[in-house]
Every structure is written in C-alpha cells, then in structure tokens.
Amino acid sequence: MNPTSYLVLATILFTLGSGGVLLRRNALVAFMSVELMLNAANLAFVAFARMHGALDGQIVAFFVMIIAAAEVVIGLAIIVMIFRTRRSASVDDASLLKL
C-alpha cells in the first residue's frame, strides 16, 4: 500500500494544527489545534502500520487517543479555570507574565 497520500494528508493536518496553535488567539481554538496535531500523528501512524503490515502503529494510535483524551481533560480544566477567573479565553489577555 502506498502511504504517500495519507502522509500528505497527515502533514497537512499537522501543519494546520501547528499553525492554529501559533496563530489563533483563543486558548480553546489553540488547544483544539493541538488535538488536530495529535490526530495527524495518528493518521500517519496508522498509514505506516498498513505500509509495514504491522499492528503496532495502530496500537500507538490507540494510546495517542487516550493521551489526547487525558490532555483534553487537563486542558479543559485549566482553560475553564482561567475563563472563570477572568472571563476570557484569549491567549493575549493572559499576559501578566511578561519578560
């Protein structure tokens, strides 16, 4: 199986995700972009697993999913906490820590 197209897709997703983290100012959006990156990795893993005819890539994808879930939980907790204290989820508003 030729994984190229999957890889291209994965890379596009990853780029979108990383771009999102860097460019979007809303913490939630940035955070979802991170999830997008993880899923891009998943896709790549699964594609490679097919290419090698091995299962381990798929197993990794499973683990990545759990970890993504754990990240969601933690991340949401933190973002909600901030949101509650300052009623804004913008990354720019969180600027008490400056150089």
Partner: peptide, 14 residues
C-alpha cells in the same frame, strides 16, 4: 511492547 503484542495477535489475521 507493541511489536510483540502484534506478533501475538498474528499479522496474518490483520
């Protein structure tokens, strides 16, 4: 780990 698990499951069945 994963590699070996995969072996256990049997690659042919995939």
């Amino acid at each position: 780990m994963t590699t070996r698990l995969a072996d256990q499951l049997g690659r042919a069945e995939i």
